[in-house]
Amino acid sequence: MKNIFTLLFITLLFSCQNSAQSKQQKESIKNAKAIEVPIENGKAKAYFASGCFWCVEAIYESIKGVDEVINGYSGGYTQNPTYEASNTGRTGHAEAVEVIYDPKVVNFEILVDVYFASQNPTQVNGQGPDHGSQYRSIIFYQNDEQKQIILEKKAALAKQLKAKIAAEVYPFQKFWIAEDYHQNYERLHPNHPYIQRISIPRLNKFKSKFPEKYLKETH
């Protein structure tokens, strides 16, 4: 019996230490200085996490001025995350997208509007059937102007819904590109059960309520 209690105590001790370490690592990320990605060939980049990246990729690719969306991982504290590792929730990363866009056609403010209009903004640690910290909502800012836009829109939405908005606001640090088989997933696998049941309905719901002037005829 004594050995059992000793084992339980050691397990609890390590669990508490790991939890404290993870919390400390998360706070250090949230308090870090934002890294600004320079405009290249007239194209800017923005970063968002909002549940499964297959869904988010298709949503942003439906927006005029968006050239490409890349799936990956961001917001964590380990190097070179993989799908398998991030899916455990232990790397701190969330499934995220890199949105490559023409700022002369669409601005960051509209991209934030797309973000909030394409999700359940009050769902914590997930979207729809996808649950876990790897599916949590995060908006990444690269400078004070972007941070202010995000905070103002988040506050306005909270007031409108009279509810707490789940999206976290992080300074952008690093985006890790996901494995090749995750890229252009909705387009390449339109008959996949998840795409049929979750991604396409989420995309269509978003498009039905977002101003048509911002939407491509096809994506």
Rank of each mutant, 00 (worst) to 15 (best):
M1R: 13
F9Y: 06
I10N: 07
I10D: 08
T11L: 15
T11K: 00
L12H: 03
L12T: 13
F14V: 14
S15F: 13
C16G: 12
C16R: 08
N18G: 09
N18P: 03
S19H: 14
K23L: 15
K23P: 00
Q24W: 08
Q24H: 11
Q24C: 04
Q25H: 11
Q25V: 00
S28I: 02
I29D: 05
K33T: 15
K33P: 00
E36C: 04
P38M: 10
E40G: 00
N41E: 13
K43D: 08
F48K: 06
F48Q: 08
S50K: 09
S50R: 08
F53H: 10
W54L: 08
C55E: 01
A58V: 01
A58Q: 05
E61F: 09
S62T: 03
S62P: 01
G65F: 03
G65N: 11
G65C: 01
D67I: 02
N71S: 15
N71P: 04
G72H: 10
Y73T: 04
S74R: 05
G76Q: 01
G76N: 02
Y77L: 02
N80C: 03
Y83C: 08
Y83V: 03
E84D: 11
E84M: 09
E84H: 05
A85Y: 02
S86I: 05
N87W: 03
N87R: 12
T88C: 10
T88N: 11
G89A: 07
T91W: 02
T91D: 06
H93F: 01
E95R: 11
E98I: 06
V99W: 06
I100S: 01
V105T: 13
V106H: 02
N107T: 01
F108P: 07
I110N: 00
F116R: 05
S118H: 08
T122F: 00
T122G: 07
T122L: 03
Q123Y: 11
V124I: 15
G126F: 12
G126P: 00
P129D: 10
H131T: 14
G132M: 10
G132R: 11
R136V: 10
I139Q: 12
F140D: 10
Y141T: 04
Q142A: 05
N143D: 14
E145F: 12
E145L: 14
Q148A: 13
L151A: 09
K153W: 05
K154Q: 15
K154M: 10
K154F: 11
A158Q: 08
Q160K: 15
L161H: 08
L161G: 01
A163G: 06
A166Q: 06
E168P: 09
V169N: 07
V169Y: 01
F172N: 05
K174T: 14
W176T: 10
W176E: 11
E179K: 09
D180K: 13
Y181K: 12
H182S: 05
H182D: 07
N184K: 14
E186S: 15
E186K: 12
H189I: 04
P190E: 10
P193F: 11
P193M: 10
Y194P: 02
I195D: 01
Q196E: 05
P201L: 12
R202T: 14
N204H: 12
K205R: 14
F206A: 06
S208D: 14
S208G: 14
K209V: 09
K209E: 13
K209Q: 15
P211D: 08
E212L: 03
E212Y: 00
Y214M: 01
Y214V: 04
K216L: 04
